[in-house]
Simulated assay, not measured.
Amino acid sequence: MQQNITVDTIPYQQLPLTGQFSVFELESFKTELAGIPHRHHDFQILWFTKAAGDHIVDFVTYELKNNTIFLLRPGQVHQLPAKGIFGFSITFTEKFYFTNKHERETLYDFTTLFDDSQEYAPIFISKPSAENLGMIITLMRQELSAQFEGSSSSVIKHYLNAFLLLAEREKKHNVANSPALLNHDPRIIQLRRLVDKHFRMEHQAGFYAQQFSLTPKRLNEITRDAISKTVTDMVHDRLVLEAKRQLAFSNRSVKEICYELGFEDPAYFSRFFRNHAGTSPHEFRETMFK
């Protein structure tokens, strides 16, 4: 993080969303948030066909390489180079993809691909797959420009489904990600969603176990088998991430952040943060803006 930028809230970048779906060339899209940390309201696929520099996603820096895909969930904070990136952005809402219950039961569940409860990593795309993905992008853009009433969204949805399935296949071919995918448990996705929704007020494993009608012990067995973490580990990871976001990108005091995240004692919150982040909240904030 090179830029000394502090704002009241982490900014949301407004993308050129056509209804609940958009696809555009990265090099042609410029906003005032280019090159600074921001987030999005919707799911975003970033396919870098040609790129150099760093892509920072929730405080982790990834070196950009050609033919690499990043998958971002709503609310994730990321920062791209202000220039020198080429490729495509596909943005869509969950409602666009799953219009009804039948589609949830029959379409590929893309949310498993966007899950980052396991170690997050970009997807490296082979040349043959890059050609196929490029053709799907072309078909998407043609369908958007044609704007056939009634049929357009349905056709685009199936193109998107094909794009995601190809991305998943490439992810499985990425050796580093294969073991985690083989141990995939859909309950981890559901749990991560619950943690995202309730982590500010619900810090105890018992609350989350109750949502599954399981004991905390049993839910911990499931999470350990799938991601080598306990439920409490997942909640603490989410608390620390949100604390880092607020410390880095807001003017809120440590005390305000403490209370917002459901802690009653600022001193305890500071100890909690140090134990997990290896530094105090004040030190972390100062480090971000050196």
Rank of each mutant, 00 (worst) to 15 (best):
L214E: 13
A209Q: 07
R192A: 07
S152V: 06
G150W: 04
S153Y: 06
V195L: 03
S153M: 05
Y108E: 03
Q204H: 15
I136V: 15
E119L: 12
Q210P: 02
Y97L: 04
R192T: 13
S154G: 01
E143C: 12
I136Y: 12
I90H: 06
F110E: 03
E131T: 04
I85P: 02
E168M: 08
D115G: 11
V155W: 06
K197C: 00
A167F: 00
I189G: 01
A209K: 05
H158V: 02
S152T: 14
F124T: 11
L144F: 04
I136D: 07
N183C: 07
R187W: 09
T91A: 14
A180I: 02
Q211S: 13
L165R: 13
Q204V: 11
E202V: 03
N161W: 07
F88D: 08
E202S: 09
E94P: 03
I125W: 02
R141W: 00
G150N: 05
S117I: 07
M135Q: 13
F110R: 09
I85V: 15
L139S: 12
I125G: 02
F110I: 11
L181E: 08
Y120D: 10
A176G: 01
S126N: 09
T111Q: 08
F92D: 08
I136K: 10
S117N: 14
E131Y: 01
T91N: 15
R169K: 12
A176F: 05
H198R: 09
L113S: 06
F199Y: 15
E103Y: 08
L144M: 14
S178W: 10
K95T: 14
R169D: 06
K172T: 00
F199D: 01
F163Q: 03
E170K: 05
F124H: 13
D196L: 13
T93R: 15
L144K: 02
A205I: 05
Q204W: 05
Q204P: 04
A162D: 07
P179S: 04
E143R: 13
E170R: 07
R141Y: 00
S153L: 03
L133K: 03
Q210E: 14
S89T: 15
R104L: 12
E119N: 09
T93G: 12
T91E: 14
N174Y: 08
S154M: 11
F124S: 10
